[in-house]
Amino acid sequence: MQEKDTEHWDIVVEGGKSKFSFDFKEIWQYRDLITLFAKRDIATVYNQTILGPVWFFIQPLLTSILFIFFSSVAKIKTDPIPGMLFYLSGLCIWGYFTSCINNTSNTFIANAQIFGKVYFPRIVMPVSKILSGLFIFTAQFALFLLFLLFWIFFKGFQFHFSPYLLLIPYLLFVLAGISLGLGIIISSLTTKYRDLSFLVAFGVQLLQFLAPVMYPLSMATGKKHYVVLANPITGIIENFRFAFFQVGSFHWKYLAYSTGFMFVCLFVGLLMFNRIAKNFMDTV
């Protein structure tokens, strides 16, 4: 009998307990599934459209043009950064954030079909969404670089290679982490009571106005400054722009805030997500 107690069991499931346990090893085992799901997402976006991937570019382009028009009406100054580059860079980041939140916040409800039939670590789903979102981000980022080159060569825009450019992957990492964390928190909250899901869709849209996407941070003065800074994405957008345009200074403080926010989000998110994942099939 004693021998049995020391036996190794691959899977142990206990009911009624909800302690924080997160199996990072398991996620690594399922890395192939993450990439497969991400590929599937990207492939199905092209399905049954004529323009296909062109849509990835049209959206930020049209929005930027609209913003330029709006900024001239509202007298928003993006100087010394050219308007087009200013908006494209902001929209790149914000677009990634939005698509990640929208795609991860319905993890349980949208995948009830497959979750109800097979087991795999549920976190694979939102992580793969973050990954496929990165693909779209890369496309839009390439568009931004294209415009940047255009400005450098044809409009005489002065561009300096700054060492801060090396921090961009880190900025993206933090951005992805925050989106994942918020996304799984929302998806956990909306599984049983779906009230919150109504808020998410337009909430993210409203939040854009509390981020320096449409206007530079310097325009928000006084108390308004802190309201905008409270948004963890603000630091990322500001620092992203600084790396390219060197306007103002690199804000380590903001970056630290965003990083801290990411860790809290991920921790709380994983905690809730794991708890819900066990039994959500009964309530979805």
Partner: peptide
């Protein structure tokens, strides 16, 4: 796919 209420 779903968890037990009690037991293991």
């Amino acid at each position: 796919v779903t968890g037990p209420t009690t037991g293991s």
